[in-house]
Amino acid sequence: MLQRVMKLAACLAPAMLAVGCATHQATPYDYTAFKAAKPRSIVVLPPLNTSPEVTAGYTVLSQVTYPLAEAGYYVLPVALVEETFKQNGLSSAEDAQAVDPRKLHSIFGADAALYLTVTNFGASYTVLNSVVTVSAKARLVDLKTGTTLWTGEASANNDANNNNGGGLVGALVAAAVKQIINNSTDASYPVAGAASQRLLAAGQVNGMLYGPRSVYYKQQ
């Protein structure tokens, strides 16, 4: 009886391992609409901000042009885009993102628009640590048809997870110093840059596709 149980366990083990591995694999994103639209230029709309930090949207907005340009797209200057909205009476991100895609196309002439939402921004404090976290999600929309071409989300923080050799007192001192630094400097800015890079850099699994200005454009 024991031998039969052992044989059964040996047979089931590979199957159980296969199932376990499968659950960790990301479902491939469907890029059919993205590849059909072939966007060359992108207008980045003012981000929605669901975090309590009022400057979150501006901080993230200032960081998104670089990864998009590096991916091979022409990105309309974000300051010019924001000023255009203000001149037309659209002073909030909610108003800007509510504009019909075809109207945005007629105003800016871009092929696609990037809709951003900042979901987490700022520092969280515990007794032994202070961590700045920035999280955002994005949606790329074809401005000629209103079709969603791609969606994604990413997060970054400045928690190095370093073990302190000074014991509890050393950990408390290190946490106090880190909290002072986070409060006295704009620690969220580089973290927002890292989050934007993770969100919008091309070539990642289920990430943005390369644009026509990239040498990798025809290889994808």
Rank of each mutant, 00 (worst) to 15 (best):
V191C: 02
T145N: 09
Q25T: 14
S135R: 00
A138E: 07
K137I: 02
E82A: 11
L149E: 13
Y73T: 10
P101S: 01
T151G: 00
P101D: 03
S51T: 11
G57I: 05
A69P: 01
G203P: 04
N163S: 11
L199Y: 05
L2G: 15
G167L: 04
Y217D: 09
V177R: 08
A33T: 13
Y74F: 11
S51H: 08
V99R: 06
V169Q: 12
P190D: 10
L61N: 11
E94F: 04
A136C: 06
I181H: 14
R198A: 14
S91I: 11
Q219L: 10
V78E: 09
V191D: 04
Y189F: 11
A160P: 01
R198K: 15
G152P: 08
T65E: 14
G193K: 07
R40T: 14
S92Y: 02
M6A: 14
V134I: 10
A22Y: 11
Q220D: 14
E53M: 09
G20K: 05
A187K: 00
E53N: 14
L209H: 07
V131Q: 02
V75F: 05
T84D: 12
S91H: 13
V118M: 02
S188Y: 05
V173H: 00
P47T: 09
V191L: 04
V54H: 08
L12E: 10
T65R: 10
L199K: 04
Q3T: 15
A171V: 00
V131S: 01
R102V: 13
V118T: 06
Y189I: 12
Y216H: 14
Q220Y: 06
S92I: 00
N206R: 05
N162W: 00
K86T: 13
E53H: 13
Q25G: 06
N157T: 08
K137M: 13
Y217G: 07
V169L: 13
T27P: 02
T65P: 01
G166T: 02
Q97E: 07
V99K: 02
